[in-house]
């Protein structure tokens, strides 16, 4: 069974989906990510779907579930790189992915995560304490 690799970069997790996933692969990714968020204490997850030429309701649901799970684990998820044709199809399909943050590319996604964290922590110094805790664990 193929598994999608989850990379840790700084205090973020990066998932780049490069294959046409079987449904089971998508479910595995969901589990792997949850485990990895807990294990690393990362506060941000970036899912790059720029290589996906379609997103159907199953993958859409997977993305929503991942966003939901990471929220519970106090991490923010950003889906980046959705292709225009995929976005148009999703609109027609009626899938609006509520509750999922999106960005055009990985760079903008990282900026979005940094900004979200800044706002969540009241734009103050509280962030440093959290990071020390995360690094120590």
């Amino acid at each position: 069974m193929e598994r999608v690799p989850v990379l840790k970069i700084g205090d973020m997790l990066l998932v780049s989906i490069q294959v046409d996933m079987e449904d089971q692969t998508a479910l595995n990714l969901q589990e792997d990510l949850a485990d990895k968020i807990v294990a690393t204490g990362c506060r941000g997850v970036i899912i790059d779907i720029s290589a996906l030429d379609i997103v159907d309701s199953f993958v859409g649901r997977m993305l929503a579930t991942i966003a939901g799970i990471s929220k519970v684990l106090d991490a923010e998820t950003v889906v980046v790189g959705m292709r225009p044709a995929v976005a148009i199809t999703l609109v027609e399909l009626g899938l609006s992915l509520p509750g999922i943050r999106t960005a055009l590319n990985v760079e903008l996604g990282m900026a979005l995560l940094a900004r979200a964290r800044f706002e969540a922590e009241g734009g103050g110094d509280a962030g440093e304490d959290d990071e020390t805790v995360a690094a120590a664990s």
């Binding site: 889906v79 959705m82 976005a87 999106t102 055009l104 996604g109």
Partner: peptide
């Protein structure tokens, strides 16, 4: 509206 929603899905 569809264009705006699609752009949003892409993060714009």
């Amino acid at each position: 509206l569809k264009t705006v929603v699609a752009a949003r899905l892409m993060g714009a």
